[in-house]
Simulated scan of single mutants.
Amino acid sequence: METKNIYLIWAHPRRDSLTAQVVKEIQQQAEDQQITVDTLDLYRMDFDPVLRMQDEPDWANPHKTYAPEVHKLFAQMQGHDTAVIVFPVWWYSFPAILKGYIDRVWNNGLVYGEGGALPFKKIRWVALVGGAEDKFELYGWRKNMSDYLINVAGYLGVTDVDVTYLYNTIGVEEDIDNREEHYQALFTQSREMVKTL
């Protein structure tokens, strides 16, 4: 199935971060391919990642009403066939704001459970890893993270899933002679991901 529209979710506190630049590259490539992109910038919208009692799943009540923000963000996902989720890897995981978004918005009765359905047919995770690829591989983090991200999507019924890793985004674990060239290669990798949609 050819991608028609993307819901691009991203998380980084700085607008001028490498993560933000990768988001711009993805947006531009999608525009070049005439793919519509709607972007959810979790930090700029000041999303509250804390799952409070109101948003706790109630397994006995799949029709539970959650916080208005949750229902608003769930409604914003509708009509998109692909989710692209861009984030820096912090402590071998998501930023808390992104984990909180998944906890609160990808909720029972909305995206899974009785009456729930995630609208996406494809999910692409784009993870910016601060360190070098060989160390990330050596300690099993790539496998652990890939298994986790693919299984989350699979639990929600999405089987067309892939994870793109952009390595050495801090630039301290490998000998990089030309930092600009290195970052341009990461941008190219991001654009290539969009071309496969």
Rank of each mutant, 00 (worst) to 15 (best):
A20L: 02
Q21I: 07
Q21M: 14
Q21C: 02
V22Q: 04
V22R: 00
V22L: 10
V23P: 02
V23T: 08
V23L: 03
K24S: 10
E25G: 06
E25W: 02
E25A: 15
I26V: 12
Q27A: 05
Q27G: 00
Q27N: 03
Q28P: 00
Q28W: 01
Q28C: 09
Q28G: 04
Q28Y: 03
Q29G: 10
Q29V: 07
Q29R: 14
A30G: 08
A30R: 04
E31Y: 06
E31I: 10
D32V: 02
Q33M: 03
Q33R: 05
Q33K: 05
Q34M: 01
I35Y: 04
T36K: 10
T36W: 00
V37F: 08
V37H: 05
D38T: 14
D38E: 14
T39E: 15
T39F: 09
T39D: 03
T39N: 06
L40Q: 02
L40Y: 09
D41S: 04
D41K: 02
D41L: 03
L42Q: 05
L42P: 04
L42W: 07
R44L: 09
R44D: 15
R44Q: 14
R44C: 09
R44I: 07
D46L: 13
D46R: 11
D46P: 04
D46G: 09
D48A: 11
D48I: 08
D48S: 06
D48C: 13
P49Q: 13
P49S: 01
P49I: 11
P49M: 04
V50S: 06
V50H: 07
V50R: 11
L51I: 12
L51N: 07
R52G: 06
R52V: 11
R52C: 11
M53P: 05
Q54S: 12
Q54C: 12
Q54R: 14
D55A: 12
E56I: 13
P57Q: 01
P57V: 01
P57K: 00
W59L: 15
W59M: 15
W59H: 14
W59I: 06
A60V: 03
A60K: 09
A60L: 07
N61I: 11
N61P: 00
P62K: 04
K64G: 11
K64P: 11
T65E: 14
T65I: 10
Y66R: 11
P68K: 01
E69F: 10
E69A: 13
V70K: 09
H71R: 12
H71K: 07
H71V: 01
H71Y: 14
K72N: 14
K72W: 05
L73A: 02
L73G: 01
F74Q: 08
F74I: 00
F74G: 04
F74V: 11
A75T: 06
A75I: 02
A75W: 01
A75Q: 13
Q76C: 01
Q76L: 12
Q76D: 14
Q78T: 00
Q78D: 01
Q78I: 07
G79D: 05
G79F: 13
H80S: 06
D81H: 07
D81P: 07
D81Y: 05
D81R: 11
D81S: 10
T82D: 13
T82I: 03
T82S: 14
A83M: 13
A83R: 02
A83T: 14
A83H: 09
A83P: 08
A83Y: 11
A83G: 14
V84R: 08
I85S: 06
I85H: 06
I85L: 10
I85F: 03
I85A: 10
V86S: 02
V86G: 01
V86A: 06
V86M: 02
F87W: 12
F87P: 01
F87S: 07
